[in-house]
Design a protein around this nucleic acid. Sequence first.
DNA 1: TCGGGGATTGAAATCGATTTCAATCTCGAC
DNA 2: GTCGAGATTGAAATCGATTTCAATCCCCGA
Lengths: 358, 358
Amino acid sequence: MATIRDVAKLARVSPATVSRVLSGKGAVSEATRRRVLDAMAALNYEPNALGRNLRKQETKTVIVLIPDIKNPFFSEIIRGIEDVAIREGYTILLGNTDNDVKREAEYLRILNAKRADGLILTTARVEKDHILALARQKPVVLACEYLLDADVPSVSIDNVSSARKATAHLLSLGHTRIAHLTGPLHVIISRDRLQGYQQALHQHGLSVDPALVQEGDWTLDSGYLLMRKLLALAHPPTAVFAANDEMAIGAIRAVRERGLRVPDDIAIVGFDDIAYAAYVDPPLTTVAQPCYEIGRTAMEMVLHLIRGEPIPQPQRVLEDRLVIRRSCGTPRRRNDKGSGARMPVEGPIHQSKGRGKA
Amino acid sequence: MATIRDVAKLARVSPATVSRVLSGKGAVSEATRRRVLDAMAALNYEPNALGRNLRKQETKTVIVLIPDIKNPFFSEIIRGIEDVAIREGYTILLGNTDNDVKREAEYLRILNAKRADGLILTTARVEKDHILALARQKPVVLACEYLLDADVPSVSIDNVSSARKATAHLLSLGHTRIAHLTGPLHVIISRDRLQGYQQALHQHGLSVDPALVQEGDWTLDSGYLLMRKLLALAHPPTAVFAANDEMAIGAIRAVRERGLRVPDDIAIVGFDDIAYAAYVDPPLTTVAQPCYEIGRTAMEMVLHLIRGEPIPQPQRVLEDRLVIRRSCGTPRRRNDKGSGARMPVEGPIHQSKGRGKA
DNA sequence: TCGGGGATTGAAATCGATTTCAATCTCGAC
DNA sequence: GTCGAGATTGAAATCGATTTCAATCCCCGA
């Protein structure tokens, strides 16, 4: 592979001049410029990123840590991140931590070893203090998550109010025994969603039955298993608010296996609006997060930090949207007014986020 | 951040000695060793990867290109790749190409700029010659795919025979009008699956009705839309073999929206056995690919190439498995012998690949 | 006591770019 | 014809590690 020295020699100039042509900065006469470009073309020269990185002390790389690459919710965030990254000449180093603190720490070490310029954390497992310490030295942005009493830039939705809204929807349909499948409770957004659920019940003058709150781990399997537990109760719930769509889909399966129907016997609400939500039977009512937007914003924030620019809105809260499909059905009992329109509004099938796809 | 020079100064040795302690190679007296380690600890020293990379001309990074990060099939492959990578001290630079040739080429440029030591391609869009040229200079491995008449190392299943098996399953249930939803036909595995489908029909003395073969793009949406097309035919099929699970799930939705039932009116077989396959209604009969294994093997191959070791089996073909769930139902018409066991064998719900998860 | 060989150690080159600083060149104004 | 400002260019330092090569040290046998 040709180096800058080879190019310089062939063009009969110094490496410094080649570098100037390369970067476009610094004055170079048109004649030399041409000679250098010709030499680069002739040698099929590609600047070695290692040398450049070392000298410039930057890598044009951002680490993105996600807890579970299989969760489609994260895939969409990554797309948002990557689109901005590509546009700005950055690459992303994806770290799938599998919810493993050790693996997460390993990636943070890479950041410290200067192999990346910045970091985007989705749901972090390492201690708050560790993140805080890191954020003081390096560009760090939280996506989907945030730290209480800390000014680490973050972008997310208001999980409390979204969860309240989702639960209120079930309440408005006449349900009073509403269960909640939570995410792992060490994660703040799980606690926020739980809180929103509790708030909604309290606002309706209902108390929270601890037996109806079950902690899951976001997976299809955990939704399935927890729902079986709930169905085995003496007084099973008539509705379930799952903290993400995958658990909701797992729950639907458990309900069906029990010979019951969704939404007639059990109404279900999910969270995230992943692509599958519209495709399961019945299509899932869920809270749509602007995943792509979250990713995009997080990457933009991290770029601001890297460039030392101020971030316009360091704590960004984006809008979510309750997408009503069929998994909750129509009002129960007296609440059913029997008006003409019995069919609930249908959410859209296609969820393209402006990336145009057949 | 402390450099090797700082550590050397504090330990009253030369940088060379610090480097020797760091690598464990070269003789260092126990006393100096201790002094150096103490100095490193005192300064909280972390070797700068940039300097090391430049000198050693390696990055301990492998690029993994996937066409669509949202497809759960790829997520599982990535897990396999990443597990091996972590174990061997490598990081992966994930490139989501969104089926965009330009984006793919951009990542290949990164490889050339020495920012990665090797490359794993899942389904490539760039020209065969380009890949071949690259593979002659750098470590390149194909996962899920292969090149005809070329010795680029690859790992995949035998897509032709798998597709034949899946189609034969439908034939054995008495179906004769079987449609096929293909993947993008510029991709070799799509063509292989199509070929397997055709072979199965021919072996049963049936001819291929071109109207029943529809080209999709792997997505839920395309499966949905193509199935609607098929249902609009004068003689719609009684069974569908989809080239992946997502299209199969999309197809199920189209069937149901038409007021028809799966498998009673239309039987459906998928491909890949993604996690959702067991969770849709009805659970999907599908061909299980050993995704995790494919990823693992691909990464091991690329490591062999990087280290200049020979690859034991450069063209690796792994075993697939037809997982029979309920989306195909029982034999139709005369073929239905009415024996005691009407229920088909159930595939497993949980698909953990030995990674143990609740 | 001296010499030799292995163990330790350090000086300096190196990887491939960027950047600083100074030298040279050009050209117009006086 | 001379001077000076601005344009152009190159030599050399630099980023932070690794590695080569040579120097020194130490210990043991002759």
